[in-house]
Design a protein around this nucleic acid. Structure first.
Lengths: 292, 292
DNA sequence: CACGATATCTGACTAAAGTCAGATAATGCT
DNA sequence: AGCATTATCTGACTTTAGTCAGATATCGTG
């Protein structure tokens, strides 16, 4: 009863019945689950029909019929895609928006109810983040984004907060050489965010300089996503970005209070070098030559 | 993207698709999901078909047909219940046992695969326990059991381990007044175990004495089940058991290193009293008069 | 502009799940 | 023994989901 496999299976059973309950509550709006799922996918911003079909794993015939039934209900409209008239895009009508909002309310109040019924709110949320990240590890998307996007700023705020906790002396961004956002955007650099489902769970910046190398900055992986190899994936993606930008030498600085970072660098071809800047926080410096 | 409700909903989405994948793997044995579920319910020891019907939420007509199809496949046999010939009980044939074992293998290897793919094994398991307990909180069963049953001994081992961690001086059972199992069985006392699904997640003992009172011992709630009010439920159940046994005065001892326990006692009608034994570990003593 | 590829739709199916009104048989209670 | 109750089964449905072979329209490329 206490072996790991039994524990996983107990979790599966608990969650299966919870999911069933959620599905059932969705049926309360008098529409089959298939149609409700399509409506919700559209409400969540998936407009292209092919995309929805892939996302929900539906046959094209079935998809077409579900769209038709939503159209007949007056909840959606479809138009030809503006660049490619073979493709269709769907959008919610006014009534569709109301109906979508009703589903959102159902989901939200189910989630709120779950949180309200339990007192270990933060522990539960952390556990949910962890499991969700583990389950969706194959679907983590790495995307180059503006370092001033919401997603990037969320990651950076979490990153700074963590440095504050892990450095004995705390961490004050203003004392560090805060990279100019411009240096982490094309064509000088890049900023990559890892998003699982909708939650940003990691980031890394590639900062262009005028000294013949680019720097890797702000590598962060959310606690709930550690152990998934995400740090490595982010670094690999950054190296690819650097190659694309024609950069062949990379440098980075880090701190020995972050041993997992040091370990990652040492095992992925980085070479320790002497201090190359006067930032007060780092005490370890690395360099890597990348071949295009 | 970081508000609690979104995090719960992200978890729901992650888990919904994982559950779907598990269901799909069950289809691989060439049998519709409904029949597979019934077969598995029988394999897991649910023999009465009314019970299975409730558990799976099936209509009686549908249930009947699923049983018939499993019978036709030669996987189960049904007999009249020995006390009530209206009811039927189902059991697996030899072939049914083989088929059930194949489903078990599928579930187990799915669970093992999940664990193997992820490196944060212990953290994941703890998170799963926590969430499973929160989801099944309404289905936690309190059952009086022999204190030497597997379930009870599992709880006690966890309890002692936790005391060892939380007491500055550690904890050695042999130094404590280890209650005789006989004193925690009817008619002198009771031992109650809380089981969620199949996992024991809490216990409490009621130990009869010859001094005109009974003692409450070994109150333990698994870390993953804290915040669900389980301690209170266990204490209430013990008071009920005491009433049934004709006991009207209860005592207990505890330690100030376990503040949540002290808080529970103080808020549920217990009154602090002077030390009434010479056990080396406790430093707080309580008493409660219960009315029948 | 011809032609293969692509995206969606339609029609004609099947399978699975679920519903519901009786039928049948056993039981508990008076 | 009579009768309401309970547990299960059967027959006759409907709904939902899913499959598959074409039909239709558009696109990209030579």
């Amino acid at each position: 009863m206490l072996d790991p496999v039994s524990r996983v299976r107990r979790f599966n059973r608990a969650v299966t019945s919870a999911v069933g309950a959620l599905d059932t509550s969705f049926l309360g709006r008098g529409r089959p689950l298939g149609a409700a799922r399509v409506l919700n996918a559209i409400g969540h911003g998936r407009s292209e029909i092919g995309e929805i079909r892939d996302y929900l794993g539906l046959d094209s015939g079935l998809m077409s019929r579900l769209l038709r039934s939503l159209e007949d209900e007056g909840l959606i409209e479809t138009h030809a895609h503006e660049d490619d008239a073979r493709r269709r895009v769907a959008s919610l009508t006014r009534a569709g928006k109301r109906e979508f909002a009703a589903y959102e309310d159902l989901s939200n109040s189910q989630a709120e109810g779950f949180l309200a019924r339990n007192s270990q709110r933060e522990a539960l949320l952390a556990a949910m983040d962890l499991i969700a990240s583990a389950l969706t590890r194959d679907r983590i998307a790495l995307t180059a984004m503006d370092p001033r996007s919401d997603e990037a700023r969320y990651c950076l705020a979490e990153y700074y907060a963590e440095l504050g906790r892990r450095f004995k002396q705390g961490f004050d961004v203003s004392l560090s050489r805060d990279p100019d956002a411009k240096d982490m955007r094309r064509p000088r650099g890049s900023f990559i965010v890892a998003v699982s489902d909708t939650l940003p769970i990691g980031c890394v910046g590639l900062k262009g300089t005028d000294h013949g190398y680019a720097e890797i900055k702000r590598l962060w992986v959310a606690p709930s996503a550690r152990g998934l190899g995400l740090g490595k994936r982010l670094m690999d993606a950054t190296e690819d970005a650097a190659r694309t930008l024609g950069i062949s030498l990379l440098r980075l600085d880090t701190n020995s209070a972050l041993p997992e970072a040091g370990r990652l660098y040492r095992t992925t071809g980085w070479r320790e070098i002497p201090r190359f800047n006067d930032d007060p926080y780092p005490d370890l410096f690395f360099e890597k030559q990348i071949r295009s």
